[in-house]
Design a protein around this nucleic acid. Structure first.
Lengths: 155, 155
DNA sequence: GGACAATATCTGTTTAAACGACTATCGTGA
DNA sequence: TCACGATAGTCGTTTAAACAGATATTGTCC
């Protein structure tokens, strides 16, 4: 009965997977590009820097560098200099931990919180303009599919 | 009747849009990262370079630099040096157009075609491993949602 | 046919990404 | 307690991304 995919069925199906990947990349590029142009660039922040600030605000307490790295959306291979740039602008502050002197603790400063607070409404507005027309039903469906895409069965 | 969104309904809905964006970014990062590690990096190609080669193969004829740029997944601000790197490796060839001497025509070389041919099965295999478990139904749904996300009503 | 805006690409420069090697510190076990 | 592997960050270097300005060519309008 179930013969699995034969040659004839495999080709168009593979094309579907490829099309999904292409659409994923294209969609993110469009949406992220607009977000950068409208919100991040005027604030002279990269998406990565914004991500760090969001993580630190969300944590509600200082985090180790590595802990921040683990929570990033995209893997960051050079947390040190990323934090250097934020620290230079006084948006975050670093300090060695007393307990474990290998660890550098990072916290968001008041200036960082203030910047995020200014950005919040712009980010929300941009998100709504970009995805608001999908409606709650489609958004939930999209989120579910994206999560499912990441959680593949074994490996 | 339809009062639109009030404060109470707005907040969680905005969160949904944000969650969708986060999931989009995370999913692409995971999938693209694997693809790079498994397929592109061993071939010493960046995703952008691969994209150029795919575009040129797909076109079936030489294209102007700007034409390639227009077809890229992500906007490329420096086509010249991107092509420089590919040309240095003999994967593409450039030549001035006779008709319009401003235009530089780019074509994929035999070596470029050969490289793509070697990569094809690996790309397909990676795609299937990454997204195959979604099945045709979910893939089509995902594609449709992503397209819908990009095609927002007016602006 | 000469000025001029538009087009297509190139180049200079600054900044950040990526990768690897390196330093400092900690925990464990003989 | 001291060797040693593991952990947490940092630093050096190469390469590419990004932006702005420059160059070359074309079509068009007096």
């Amino acid at each position: 009965m179930s013969l699995g995919r034969d040659i004839k069925k495999t080709k168009p199906f593979d094309a579907l997977e490829q099309e999904a990947m292409l659409n994923l990349a294209r969609t993110l590029d469009v949406l992220a590009g607009e977000m950068v142009a409208e919100v991040f660039k005027p604030a002279d922040l990269s998406p990565t820097q914004y991500n760090v600030l969001r993580i630190l605000r969300g944590a509600g307490e200082p985090l180790a560098c590595g802990e921040v790295a683990d929570r990033m959306i995209a893997r960051e291979p050079d947390m040190t200099r990323l934090l250097d740039r934020l620290e230079k602008r006084k948006l975050v502050a670093r300090s060695r931990t007393k307990a474990d002197r290998r660890v550098v603790s990072v916290r968001i400063t008041d200036a960082g919180m203030k910047l995020l607070a200014e950005l919040d409404p712009k980010v929300l507005a941009a998100h709504r303009r970009q995805l608001g027309h999908l409606g709650e039903r489609d958004l939930k469906e999209l989120i579910a599919l994206l999560e499912k895409a990441r959680e593949r069965p074994s490996a």
